[in-house]
Amino acid sequence: MAEETMPASPPDKPVYRFAPSPNGLLHLGHALSALLNHDMAEAVGGRFLLRIEDIDLTRCTPEFEAAIYRDLAWLGLDWEKPVRRQSEHFDAYHEALARLSEMGVVYPAFLTRGEVKAKVAACEADGKSWPRDPDGSPLYPDDDRHRSETERRKLTADGVRHAFRLDMQKALGLIAAPLSWTETGDRGEIPADPSAWGDVVLSRSDAPSSYHLSVTVDDAAQGITHVVRGLDLFEATAVHRLLQELLELPQPVYHHHRLVVGADGRKLSKSEGSTGLAALRDRGLSGSDIRRLVGL
């Protein structure tokens, strides 16, 4: 990898990061994650970084980014400058994708969401079950994986929009040992099964990278030693471990914390204004009140 993507030497101190997307206002769930990262870093004399994950240029805005800085400062947090912004590192993601392509584990995927949905519906209408990933979404069909190079070149030449996906079977064939990751606490070593996610997206026609690829590259570039994030990303760690092995990147230690849920028991959403940090601040709450609300 380029020097930007891979630290020249191991970090002297533990490095933690909070990495929100500026596509909405932060809520209590984000507060829990940010506070945990900050407190865990402080407890071990480590570093606390902020990363702005603005790879989705259609939904992320400067206004939401400014709100992130405002909310975190109100919580009493401070972070190292400058802040890494994904939109300034597209070249790093392109380079990682090119390396994976050279390994033969990437293919162009031309099916639209509508076509995938229709295939799944037809299968289930026949009484068959369609395989789904840990989040419950249907796995991508194998049509594009089996296309000939001639057909792929023709579709590309015709201007058909496409994404790039990881050929999971080929990728796993390059990994010699079983994958796992280290989870803090008493959970220890967790077996990783990236195959449960099927052929994940690495890059789309409207974005230069997917979450899976960019977060893996970013964590390596910033020398992140401890990834502290919500339990909703626990299963996705298997994909990140696979990409780390393929790209020869260091493996962080992981800590997946509990989620803050709403009255309906579901994970909070940025659309729920009642739990937004800005709304709570406007109601007169303090940073200390937020710590209490999230159980810290």
Rank of each mutant, 00 (worst) to 15 (best):
E80N: 06
P252Q: 06
R47S: 12
H38W: 15
L242D: 04
G265F: 06
K119P: 00
L57V: 06
G114L: 10
A66R: 02
E4Y: 08
L280F: 15
S148C: 12
D218M: 10
P7G: 00
E88D: 14
L111E: 11
D193S: 12
V201F: 11
A236L: 09
A176P: 00
T237K: 03
T61K: 00
P138Y: 13
K117C: 02
S180V: 05
G276S: 15
P22T: 01
G276V: 08
E88P: 00
S274W: 14
D143H: 11
E95H: 09
A163I: 09
L36I: 10
L100E: 00
E248F: 04
H256N: 09
R153W: 03
E149W: 09
E115N: 03
V253Y: 01
A220T: 06
V239C: 09
G198S: 11
T184H: 10
F18R: 07
Y254W: 05
R292I: 14
R241I: 10
D133N: 13
D167C: 11
A41L: 03
D12G: 10
S214T: 07
H38V: 09
W79Y: 04
D264G: 12
V120H: 07
A221R: 00
L25M: 12
R283P: 02
A73P: 01
P178V: 12
D135H: 03
L296Q: 10
D289Q: 12
V160N: 07
L246Q: 01
S286Q: 14
E42Q: 11
D206R: 11
I224C: 13
A67R: 13
